[in-house]
Design a protein around this nucleic acid. Structure first.
Lengths: 109, 109
DNA sequence: ATACTATATTGCCAATCAGGTATATATTCC
DNA sequence: GGAATATATACCTGATTGGCAATATAGTAT
């Protein structure tokens, strides 16, 4: 696994993709898709997002390759394209755990 | 390593932290800090960012715990607080590699 | 063709935010 | 004390964007 150099250009590409994830609504969508493929309507019920809004989020996630699209009759089914998102969530959850530990240490002093 | 449940609240905390990373300028700052602790002036030279701007980015990164601060006389030295950022960059770089491979397959068809 | 449903798109508004200028604060040196 | 330097903060502006309402598109059914 050769490491890519973090040139400004690469950092910009990374930032663009992180921005797509840095949004509670989109993380909720992706989290709902963990259980498997879902239609837009189902995602709306799962997340409480409005239809137009949801559609816009899905377009972005699809453009950046986070979700796959499958059309069947009137319905469009979305699914996770890879597990990148949850690798990142794992890293962040670990960090949150550390933050909470540190906060407890502060209170104990 | 117990997995935290990805409740909407946790997803919001994750999104907040990802947002801090989803910015080329801040990724450049963090990347510059990989070589070790740096003063604000040095970071300005390394990144080309303006002083006020840089200071604002550093405040955010410090608030969220991505960097540590050490004051010495007139200078303030910042340093990476953990390697979270580059774990995430690794994941994203792998994704970028896959994107490029997929694009090449598209062109070959 | 008409009616109906699921999804996408467009246009708008309010909020957020990166970047810059000017100013404030803190520290050192004289 | 005052001058000089390093960093932080306050304020403004332009650009981006999440959310919503309205409309458009596509597919199904009758």
């Amino acid at each position: 696994m050769a490491k890519i150099a973090l040139t400004p250009e690469v950092l910009t590409l990374i930032a663009e993709r992180l921005k797509a994830l840095a949004e509670p609504a989109r993380l909720q969508i992706l989290n709902a898709l963990r259980k498997g493929e879902r239609s837009v309507t189902e995602l709306g019920e799962a997340t409480g997002l409005g239809q137009a809004n949801l559609s816009k989020h899905l377009r972005l996630l699809h453009t950046l390759g986070f979700v796959a699209r499958r059309k069947e009759g009137l319905f469009v089914y979305y699914a996770l394209a890879d597990d990148t998102v949850f690798q990142i969530c794992d890293v962040m959850c670990d960090r949150l755990g550390e933050e909470m530990k540190a906060r407890r240490r502060m209170l104990a002093s």
